[in-house]
C-alpha cells in the first residue's frame, strides 16, 4: 500500500516506536501482548507492525460516531447489514455488533483498498455476446460472460462504490415500493437484496442467490423463486456506474469481516461474532487434548491475548532472536 493517507491514523501519524515500546498504545488500546518487560530497542525498519507495512486497527471515535458515511447513508447501510446478519439484543446480529462502524472505519482509513490492489488502467470494458467489441483505446474489451474469471477489475474504489451503491439501493427501493430502503419491511428488504445477490450470481454464470449452487443432498430448494431477469436489469439500470451485484457482495463480505474480526477494528462488539460460532479467538496454544476433544477457552480478543513467554525475563527469547548482522534496509 503506497497511499500516503494510510500512514496516518485518524489524522495523526503513528510513530513506529510508539507501537513497539513498553506500553504500546494506539487508539486507546494497548497492543495485545506487549508487556513492560520487553525493554529491548527494536530497530524501526525491522518491524512488520510498521504502519507502512499494512493497516493497523483503527482507534475509537466514540462507538457510534461515523467518520465516512452521511446520516442518510448510515440509515440504509444499517438496514442492509441488519438483513445480512439479523439479530436483536439477545442474539446480536451485525447491527448490535457494530458492523456499520467497522465498515465506516475501513472506508475512512483506506481511501483505496485495505488490501493490496493494482489500481492503474487500462480497465476492462465488458461487451455482450454478438456485440461489436467497444473500440475505446483507453479500455480493454472483454466478453461480459468472461469478466468474472478475471476477478476484481472495476475502476471504482470502495469509497465510491459505497456512495453510489447505497444511493442505488434507495433509488431501487423508491422505484419498487415508493420508499427508502430503510423504511421497507423486512420481507421487502430481503426481496430487494435478493435481486442484488442475483445480479452477482448472474455475472458468474451461476443461478441466482449465493449458495445452493453445487450438487447437494441438503438444503432442498425452499420453493422461493429467485429474482426475475427484468428485476435484475432494472437494478443494473438504476445503479448506474456501480454494479449492484458487486456492491451487494462487498457489503456482505464487509459485514462478515466486521462481525468476525477483532473488536479493535470497530465491529464484533462484546465478541458477539465469535460467541455466535464458538471461536476462542486470539489464543496462544491448544493442547493435543483440546485439539481432539474441545476446549473450555473463552473467546478472547487480541487485547486479551496472554503475553508471549519470551517477553518475560528468562523466557527464552534468545532462541527466537536471530542474528541481525548482515541484514540492512536500503
Amino acid at each position: 500500500m503506497t497511499q500516503g493517507r494510510e500512514r496516518t491514523f485518524l489524522g495523526a501519524t503513528i510513530s513506529r516506536r510508539s507501537m513497539l515500546g513498553s506500553t504500546a498504545i494506539f487508539g486507546g488500546l494497548a497492543l495485545a501482548g506487549c508487556t513492560p518487560s520487553s525493554e529491548r530497542e527494536v530497530p524501526e525498519e525491522q518491524s512488520i507492525l510498521a504502519p507502512d507495512r499494512e493497516p493497523t486497527p483503527p482507534g475509537d471515535l466514540g462507538p457510534d460516531a461515523y467518520a465516512f458515511f452521511t446520516e442518510e447513508e448510515v440509515r440504509s447501510l444499517e438496514a442492509m447489514v441488519a438483513r445480512i446478519i439479523p439479530g436483536d439484543d439477545d442474539d446480536p446480529g451485525a447491527l448490535q455488533a457494530g458492523v456499520p462502524v467497522y465498515i465506516d472505519r475501513k472506508l475512512d482509513m483506506f481511501e483505496a483498498f485495505a488490501e493490496p490492489t493494482y489500481r492503474h488502467g487500462p480497465f476492462a470494458q465488458g461487451y455482450e455476446d454478438g456485440e461489436e467489441p467497444p473500440a475505446d483505446p483507453e479500455s480493454v474489451p472483454v466478453p461480459e460472460d468472461q469478466l468474472y474469471r478475471y476477478g476484481y477489475q472495476a475502476e471504482l474504489g470502495p469509497q465510491e462504490l459505497y456512495r453510489l451503491g447505497l444511493a442505488g439501493v434507495d433509488r431501487l427501493a423508491q422505484t419498487r415500493s415508493g420508499s427508502m430502503f430503510a423504511d421497507l419491511d423486512a420481507g421487502q428488504q430481503d426481496e430487494l437484496l435478493m435481486v442484488l445477490d442475483g445480479v452477482q450470481q448472474r455475472s458468474e454464470g451461476g443461478g441466482s442467490g449465493s449458495g445452493a449452487d453445487p450438487e447437494a443432498d441438503a438444503g432442498e430448494d425452499t420453493g422461493s423463486s429467485g429474482p426475475s431477469e427484468s428485476e435484475m436489469d432494472q437494478a443494473e439500470d438504476l445503479f448506474g456506474e456501480a454494479d449492484p451485484g458487486s456492491f451487494f457482495n462487498t457489503v456482505r463480505i464487509d459485514t462478515i469481516e466486521g462481525m468476525f474480526s477483532d473488536p479493535a477494528y470497530g465491529g464484533n462488539r462484546n465478541l458477539a461474532g465469535w460467541t455466535l460460532i464458538g471461536w476462542p479467538g486470539a489464543q496462544r496454544s491448544y493442547s493435543p487434548h483440546e485439539m481432539m476433544h474441545g476446549t473450555d477457552k473463552q473467546p478472547t480478543s487480541m487485547e486479551g491475548l496472554t503475553p508471549m513467554n519470551p517477553d518475560r525475563a528468562g523466557g527464552g527469547r534468545e532462541a527466537l532472536e536471530q542474528p541481525r548482522e548482515g541484514v540492512h534496509s536500503h
Binding site: 445480512i84 446478519i85 435478493m194 445477490d197 442467490g209 449465493s210 449458495g211 445452493a212 450438487e215 425452499t222
Partner: peptide
C-alpha cells in the same frame, strides 16, 4: 455454500 439456501 450448498448447505444453506443463501449465504446471508
Amino acid at each position: 455454500d450448498g448447505f444453506a439456501d443463501r449465504e446471508w
